[in-house]
Design a binder for these strands. Structure first.
Lengths: 187, 187
DNA sequence: GCCACCATGTAAACAGTTACATGATTAG
DNA sequence: CTAATCATGTAACTGTTTACATGGTGGC
């Protein structure tokens, strides 16, 4: 079973919206799909090379800010077709890896205070992340009727909000459970 | 910044509980930590070799079912120390990758029915997964006082239940949003 | 006789991360 | 003058997944 480079399809999708340079794509990843599908320069540039060789995108040299060379990539018809074919294939199972749960699973081996700190830090992190998504949601709701795309963007943001919300609720529950246990042993 | 093989620490953690073969470890992964930190044979066996070479675990040959050769690995004192040191290091950021969100992000390019099917299939999958975790929770609550470990196991199960619950709630919301949009355009 | 399970490993391919390397422009 | 931003790439490494390879035991 061959795996197709999903990140390359993510690039095709972003280029469907508008032509961009590799650098632009990186930023686009960072504040949109990077939340659930991150990509760095080390993946983007090689992928662009491959896609261009396959004829799914076409690069043309342009001048950037005051004479700097840059390459702007445009989706070709073949690329558009490949993107649509990929969209029709059912998505593979999500894959998630939580190092924090691994450490917590072996939590009985660590000082209780350490586990509490770990969870608190986790909670703080996602409190901030949730606030960012709340901002996205407000922006999207404002322009919801301007493009069909916005509804789909909103769906992905709502997903993140729900999941981060679950993280926060879990953290509170976990801290309460650990506090209860400590009180018991302390008494 | 060198990365240390986290899966190897997961193995140390499992061996802390009791000595096991590589095959046993695989099964242990499958029905415990594999939910948030999966590992296959292709990772487990090489990792065991490395850990043994470093002296963090010790393997001894035994006879399995009716004379079949097998190697049972035990955590050494050095291994126990390494595990505890690792537990004290703050966990790296979670990493999650959702192909389904990527496809949904570009959902405007696909037939609406396709997006609906994708979400429905996702929902079914996690409905089943949540039921499994509910079973785990019930089992753990029953034996909660028998070992301190059980409280920590419960924390990881509760995490999964919260997150899968969020998935289901999101799927319902997403389907409602898409249905609303279709009705609008259909009218 | 066949399938599931026990048991161990290797090899190849692929994906992803990090570091290295270069260089111009602009805003403070 | 310095940091941030624009801009492009390569190289090395690590981790993960998949396929290959082998073979005995036990139940149906």
């Amino acid at each position: 079973m061959k795996r197709e480079n999903i990140t390359a399809y993510a690039i095709l999708g972003l280029l469907h919206h508008e032509p961009m340079t590799g650098y632009d794509l990186k930023k686009r990843f960072e504040n949109t799909i990077g939340h659930f599908w991150p990509a760095g320069f080390g993946q983007i540039y090689p992928a662009l090379g491959g896609l261009a060789r396959e004829g799914l995108i076409a690069g043309r040299a342009e001048e950037g800010k005051t004479g700097l060379a840059k390459t702007v990539y445009t989706l070709t018809e073949a690329g558009r077709a490949a993107l649509q074919r990929w969209l029709a294939v059912p998505a593979a199972k999500e894959h998630v890896r939580y190092e924090i749960l691994l450490k917590l699973f072996f939590g009985a081996l660590a000082p209780p205070e350490q586990n509490v700190q770990t969870i608190r830090e986790f909670r703080r992190r996602y409190e901030r992340a949730l606030a960012v998504l709340d901002g996205f949601e407000a922006d999207l709701r404002r322009v919801l009727n301007e493009s069909e795309d916005h509804l789909y963007y909103l769906l992905t943001v709502r997903f993140g909000q729900r999941v981060y919300g679950a993280y926060l609720a879990w953290a509170d529950e976990a801290l309460a459970l650990l506090a209860g246990r400590n009180k018991e042993t302390g008494a």
